[in-house]
Design a protein around this nucleic acid. Structure first.
Length: 184
DNA sequence: TACAAGATTGTCT
DNA sequence: GACAATCTTGTAG
């Protein structure tokens, strides 16, 4: 995959993008320190067609970023405590997004451990991933194709396969198997 | 204007 | 395995 392929991937169907982002690197230079993870777990949210999406009932102050152009980051606060980040996909104005649920630390591990206050389980959850990379609400609406927080070609699937499972932590439309996770 | 619920995590039992 | 921490949105009065 190349940066150009990322560009075209972002305009594909949200489920295709959710699968395609597995194995990519998410790199952060926030706070003057470089940290990075390999994306290993994603979830797809299809805005107006998805009762579980924040954008199901239209645009609000919080989810405005989801209506921006693909490649935009949508960062929101969860349960008033944690930050969770999405990659906006699809045509501009269509609130489709892929939630980055988990990653494997690949660079700046010491920095991530310091931010997280522990050595293990640095990014195996949406809130943990953001904390490890230093992502906060200030990054809402940023351009993930360039800048301090960006997606770059990573190790890819590396011969590993991925599983499709029901989504986690939601109460609506839980029957849709729109969660993708690398196994192995 | 008030209140319930939520795409979660860490700690304690 | 249960529960608290903590804030924004949506809905009702």
């Amino acid at each position: 995959m190349s940066q150009t392929e990322l560009e075209s991937l972002l305009y594909r169907d949200v489920l295709t993008v959710a699968r395609g982002l597995l194995g990519w690197s998410l790199i952060s230079d926030l706070g003057g320190e470089t940290t990075a993870v390999t994306v290993i777990e994603t979830e797809a949210y299809a805005g107006p067609d998805d009762p579980a999406s924040h954008a199901f009932r239209g645009r609000t102050k919080r989810n405005g970023s989801m209506f921006e152009r693909p490649g935009t980051g949508y960062v929101y606060r969860s349960y008033g405590i944690h930050w969770c980040m999405n990659v906006v996909v699809g045509e501009k104005g269509l609130p489709h997004a892929v939630l980055l649920r988990g990653g494997e630390p690949s660079a700046g591990v010491a920095t991530m451990a310091r931010r997280r206050g522990r050595e293990a389980n640095l990014a195996d959850g949406p809130g943990k991933l953001c904390q490890a990379l230093g992502v906060t609400g200030e990054m809402d609406g940023c351009d993930l194709r360039r800048g301090l927080l960006r997606l770059e070609p990573g190790p890819g699937l590396g011969g590993r396969t991925f599983a499709e499972t029901p989504r986690i932590g939601i109460s609506r439309a839980i029957d849709r198997r729109w969660r993708f996770i690398l196994v192995g």
